[in-house]
């Protein structure tokens, strides 16, 4: 049952990557990017890389999203493309 779960996450991963690049609102793009980080964390957990999944859960889904938000709120939220 692991393999279909794997493929499902990989498809979600591509969808999240494309959405985070297409959304014009940078705050929304950052949130989708946080979801992308969490999907990667799930993928690594299925691969048995628990330490890497743990790091990605704290870094990718947590801290890097906060850093993006801090910059966007100090600059401009709208993007032209």
């Amino acid at each position: 049952m692991i393999v279909p779960f794997d493929i499902l996450i990989l498809i979600f991963l591509v969808v999240a990557a494309v959405i985070s690049l297409c959304v014009k609102d940078l705050l929304a793009a950052t949130m989708v990017f946080g979801a992308y980080g969490f999907l990667i964390c799930l993928l690594w957990a299925t691969m048995g890389a628990v330490d890497v999944a743990f790091t990605e859960a704290t870094v990718g889904a947590g801290v890097s999203t906060v850093l993006f938000v801090a910059t966007i709120l100090n600059t401009r939220r709208k993007s032209t493309d």
Binding site: F54, T55, T58, V59, V63
Partner: peptide, 11 residues
């Protein structure tokens, strides 16, 4: 268990 300096430090 999973963990260590990097993960705990980030948390």
């Amino acid at each position: 268990s999973p963990g260590g300096g990097f993960q705990g430090g980030v948390m």
